Simulated scan of single mutants.
Amino acid sequence: MENHNLTHEFPELEDKINVLKLNDETFKKMYVNYEEVNALIQHYEEGEQNHTTDEHLTELRKKRVHLKDDVYSYLKQN
C-alpha cells in the first residue's frame, strides 16, 4: 500500500507543512480534511471486507487528488 500522507507526498515541504498546520487555521482545515479522506481510503483498502463500493472508493480517491492539489497550491502561495 502506498503512503499518501502529505509529508510523504511533499517531503521537500515537510517543515512548511508542520509550521502551517500549527499556525494557519486555513491550512490546518485543509490538512485535516485531506488526512481524513486519506485515512478513510486506507481503511477501505486495508480491510479484508470492503464496506464500500468501487464507485465510492474511486470518488474518494478523486477527492484526495483535488485536496492534494489545493494543499500544494496553498503551500506554494504561502
Rank of each mutant, 00 (worst) to 15 (best):
Met1Arg: 13
Glu2Met: 12
Glu2Asp: 12
Asn3Tyr: 04
Asn5Tyr: 05
Asn5His: 07
Asn5Leu: 05
Leu6Pro: 08
Leu6Ser: 07
Thr7Gln: 10
Phe10Val: 15
Phe10Pro: 13
Pro11Ala: 09
Glu12Ala: 15
Glu12Gln: 15
Glu12Phe: 14
Leu13Gly: 02
Leu13Thr: 01
Glu14Ser: 15
Asp15Ser: 15
Lys16Gln: 15
Lys16Val: 14
Ile17Val: 13
Asn18Glu: 13
Val19Met: 11
Leu20Thr: 12
Lys21Thr: 14
Lys21Cys: 12
Leu22Phe: 13
Leu22Pro: 14
Asp24Lys: 11
Glu25Gly: 09
Lys28Trp: 12
Lys28Leu: 12
Lys28Thr: 10
Lys28Met: 12
Lys28Phe: 13
Lys29Val: 10
Lys29Cys: 00
Met30Gly: 07
Met30Phe: 12
Tyr31Thr: 11
Tyr31Ser: 04
Tyr31Met: 09
Tyr31Val: 13
Tyr34Ile: 05
Glu35Trp: 02
Glu36Val: 09
Glu36Cys: 05
Glu36Phe: 06
Asn38Gln: 07
Ala39Cys: 01
Ala39Phe: 04
Leu40Met: 10
Ile41Ala: 00
Ile41Met: 02
Gln42Pro: 00
His43Pro: 01
Tyr44Leu: 08
Tyr44Ala: 01
Glu46Lys: 06
Gly47Gln: 04
Gln49Ala: 00
Gln49Met: 02
His51Trp: 05
His51Met: 05
Thr52Ala: 03
Thr52Lys: 01
Thr52Ser: 06
Thr53Ala: 02
Asp54Asn: 10
Asp54His: 07
Asp54Leu: 10
Asp54Arg: 08
Asp54Phe: 05
Glu55Leu: 08
Glu55Trp: 03
Glu55Lys: 08
Leu57Asn: 02
Thr58Leu: 11
Arg61Gln: 10
Arg61Thr: 11
Lys62Trp: 08
Lys63Ser: 05
Arg64Val: 02
Arg64Gln: 06
Val65Leu: 08
Val65Lys: 09
Val65Thr: 11
Val65Phe: 06
His66Asn: 05
Leu67Glu: 06
Lys68Gln: 10
Lys68Glu: 07
Lys68Phe: 05
Lys68Val: 06
Val71Thr: 03
Tyr72Trp: 00
Tyr72Met: 01
Tyr72Gln: 00
Tyr74Met: 04
Tyr74Trp: 06
Tyr74Arg: 03
Leu75Trp: 04
Lys76Arg: 09
Lys76Val: 09
Gln77Pro: 08
Gln77Cys: 02
